[in-house]
Simulated assay, not measured.
Amino acid sequence: MTTAATKSSGPAAWADALLLSFAQAGYLRAEPSILQPAEPVLDLSGEDIRKSLYLTTDATGEELCLRPDLTSPVARDYLASHRAGQPTGFSYLGPVFRYRGGRPSEFLQAGIESFGRQDRAAADAEMLALALEATSAFGLTEVEIRTGDVALFNALIDALGLYPVWRRRLVKDFNRRINLTHDIEQLTLKTAPGRNEYEGVLAALAGSDRKAALALVTDLMSIAGATNVGGRTVAEIADRFLEQSTLKGGELPRDALAIIKRFLAIADDPVASAAKLRALATDTKLNITAAIDEFESRVRFMAARGIDVRNTRFSTSFGRGLDYYTGFEFELHNRANGVEPLVAGGRYDGLMTQLGSTTPIAAVGFSVWVETLTDAAGKSGGPS
């Protein structure tokens, strides 16, 4: 796939050659608008991302932004097309815009998004194989594969039967790559007995879900004529009450804490990791078999694609720091200098409903950081 043009030209020319290879693999070219509605971006990533966006408004007052990535815009265009709900794969190449400190705010992104495939394990393996082709085509052979699977963690938390707020807190912290062991222990320490002026409210909220808690606290604040307290929103106050009610109702059981710690300590190649996960499930009598079966099926498809699974890193604690991932996650790093990922992606089955789809649609994909890959290839003596 490496051509004379890619050897003598810059990142854009190489990325065009890469895009051609994606088209030959059956992925249609997607070209979403550079200017995107800001609301979906903020809904998916939270208000914290606002400081990284380049925002404007149109004549109607709608807030718009220069696209900070291409995954969501490609997904939105797919949902608006006649292909919505059908298995379809897209490839893309174009500039994205995001404030990144001292680095350029405009940079090239290439990648693939695959929607609607029900053979999830095979689709996951195909994404990783194509991502590896992208690096090898540019002369990078010393690539480290780092993988994880948030579906395994979610299955474990569900099997433990924890209070809803514990599940929400732990999954949220896992997705954001927070030190879970420290967080769990700190929260457990907060369960000391005592009474306060909110005792009745806490009792009313105990065991409820976030939606019920938010409704109750909103009603109470409306009666009091307040919309925020100390700079905190109604939702933030409801979350705090819900957390306190759960802690009041009972701390995270020590056996659950021990199981989570054991789970998060699993780090090996995928084959060895699967054996450790089976042993954990047997020892704890927790029903996480379906998630492990899916994990092992993916590993078999990876091997069938020619991926050296024995030289692939897997860790149960690996995550990409984004809430919308629902399963397989991966990053490819240059072994010589692996700080920044060259390619990164994973499964995000929940994104389509978040973007307005009335039915769930399977989705998996990856992004190529073109300039990062170009720099790494140049330093290793590959095309430049």
Rank of each mutant, 00 (worst) to 15 (best):
T2Y: 14
A5K: 05
A5Q: 07
A5P: 01
T6F: 09
S8Y: 13
G10T: 05
A12L: 14
A12K: 07
A13W: 13
L18A: 13
A25Q: 14
Y27V: 11
R29C: 08
A30E: 04
S33N: 10
I34Q: 06
P37I: 00
A38R: 05
P40D: 09
P40S: 07
L42Q: 09
D43W: 07
S45P: 08
S45F: 15
I49Y: 10
I49S: 06
K51G: 07
L53S: 08
T57C: 15
A59N: 15
G61R: 03
E62L: 01
L64W: 09
L66T: 06
S72N: 10
S72W: 13
Y78S: 03
A84D: 04
G85R: 04
G85E: 07
P87M: 10
T88Q: 11
F90W: 08
L93V: 09
G102E: 12
P104R: 09
S105P: 07
F107T: 05
L108T: 05
D119Y: 13
R120C: 13
L128Q: 10
L128D: 05
L132C: 02
F138A: 01
G139C: 01
L140D: 02
E142Y: 00
G148F: 01
D149Y: 04
V150G: 01
F153G: 08
A155N: 08
D158G: 03
D158F: 00
L162S: 10
V165K: 12
W166C: 07
R167T: 13
R169C: 02
V171Y: 00
N175C: 09
N175F: 06
I178L: 14
L180C: 01
H182E: 13
E185Y: 00
N196W: 02
Y198E: 12
E199V: 03
G200H: 07
A203W: 06
L205I: 11
A206P: 01
G207W: 11
G207P: 04
R210T: 11
K211C: 02
A212W: 03
A212N: 11
D219R: 11
S222L: 10
G225A: 01
N228P: 02
G230R: 01
G231K: 03
E236D: 15
I237L: 02
A238D: 09
F241L: 06
L242P: 00
L242I: 05
Q244R: 12
S245P: 02
S245K: 03
R254A: 15
A256I: 04
A258M: 14
K261P: 05
A267I: 06
V271L: 06
A274Q: 08
A275K: 13
L277Y: 04
R278W: 01
L280G: 05
T284R: 00
L286D: 08
L286R: 08
I288S: 00
A291P: 06
F295K: 10
F295E: 09
S297E: 12
R300M: 05
V309C: 12
F314M: 11
S315I: 14
T316Y: 11
S317G: 14
F318V: 13
D323W: 12
G327A: 13
G327D: 15
F328H: 13
F330K: 04
A336N: 14
G338I: 10
V339R: 15
V339A: 15
L342E: 07
A344P: 00
G346P: 00
L351V: 11
T353D: 00
G356S: 04
S357H: 00
S357M: 00
T358Y: 10
T359K: 14
T359Y: 02
S367L: 02
V368Y: 06
T372G: 10
K379Y: 10
S380F: 05
